[in-house]
């Protein structure tokens, strides 16, 4: 399953929230990917999220595929929307 989300956080997705996100993502079994401007990376990799360079205002697509995808999507999508 897929969902498009706009980054609202002032500092973008690459700063402090990245490590919280990766930590949460690692708690799920399903594959979690994030894509932004044609680049797709592993959402469980803190270093890959940093290289994504998703700044405020950019649109990212969150993809969760696997057993617990519904729970993962619900928590992670909400996290990206509300992080600051």
């Amino acid at each position: 399953m897929k969902q498009e989300i706009v980054i609202a956080a002032e500092a973008g997705f690459h700063a402090r929230p990245a490590s919280i996100f990766a930590k949460k993502a690692m708690g799920y079994q399903c594959d979690i990917n994030i894509s932004c401007e044609g680049k797709e990376i592993n959402g469980k990799s803190i270093m890959s999220i940093l290289t994504l360079g998703a700044a405020k205002g950019s649109v990212v697509t969150l993809t969760c595929e696997g057993a617990d995808e519904a729970e993962a999507m619900a928590e992670l999508a909400a996290f990206i929307e509300t992080m600051d």
Partner: peptide
């Protein structure tokens, strides 16, 4: 704690 996150990084 951050160092442990890096160590667990699947891409690395």
């Amino acid at each position: 704690e951050a160092h442990q996150m890096i160590l667990q990084d699947p891409e690395w």
